[in-house]
Simulated scan of single mutants.
Amino acid sequence: MITYLQISTTVPSEDMASRLARSITENRLAACVQIVGPIRSIYWWQGNLENSQEWLLQIKATLSLFPALEKHIKANHSYETPEIIATEIVTGNAEYLAWISAETKRSGASS
């Protein structure tokens, strides 16, 4: 049984969001990347309370692609420690989930 994920990461600019979303999708590491933003993030970083404008990427992929996707995000992200959080999609529209499988299998990776 294929496990589907929604992975989230945030980036500091709309341009970076577009570039990262495109590179993830072009490399078939995900079937879809949605960009939401701008959003406001308030968080602790290196002892300081930060208040930043960011863009949220919601990435639809399979569990088998997660290691390559995580590596790709880290290699193409400007943050020292980027948010990369995967949430399992426990159920969903069967046709949509099949579409995720079909589009990511084109990468040559097994899903």
Rank of each mutant, 00 (worst) to 15 (best):
S23F: 08
R19E: 09
N51Y: 05
I35K: 04
I39G: 06
W55P: 12
E50P: 01
L49S: 04
G47M: 09
Q58S: 13
K105M: 09
W45V: 12
Y79W: 03
I7L: 06
T62A: 03
M1V: 13
K71C: 03
I2G: 10
P38S: 07
P12V: 02
E103S: 07
L29C: 10
I7S: 00
C32P: 01
P38I: 01
D15R: 13
N76L: 05
E26C: 08
L97A: 13
T87P: 03
P38E: 15
R40G: 08
W45N: 09
I100D: 10
S18Y: 04
L63W: 09
E26R: 06
T9E: 06
Q58K: 07
G37T: 08
E80G: 02
Q46W: 12
Q53Y: 02
K60M: 08
M16I: 10
I2T: 15
W99Q: 07
E70H: 09
T91L: 13
L49Q: 13
I85S: 10
L69A: 03
V33W: 02
Y96R: 05
H77M: 10
M16S: 13
I2C: 11
S18N: 14
T25M: 10
F66L: 14
A86T: 13
S18R: 15
A94W: 05
W45G: 07
E50I: 03
N93L: 00
K74W: 04
A17D: 02
V11D: 02
I59P: 12
E70F: 04
I59K: 11
G92L: 00
Q46P: 02
T87K: 12
E83W: 05
L97C: 09
E70V: 01
S110K: 14
T9Y: 02
L57H: 11
G47D: 05
A31V: 01
S107F: 04
G47I: 05
S78P: 15
S8M: 11
S111R: 00
Q6V: 15
L56P: 08
K71H: 10
P82D: 08
F66A: 09
T87I: 15
I89M: 01
K74Y: 08
E26S: 07
A68H: 03
L20G: 06
A17V: 12
N48C: 12
S111G: 11
D15Y: 11
Q6H: 04
S101P: 06
L20R: 01
T87F: 15
I73M: 10
A17E: 02
E54W: 02
Y96S: 13
E50L: 07
A102C: 13
N27H: 14
P67N: 04
G92Y: 08
L56Q: 07
T81N: 14
D15Q: 06
A94K: 14
T9R: 10
E103G: 00
R22H: 13
Y79I: 04
Q6K: 11
A102W: 09
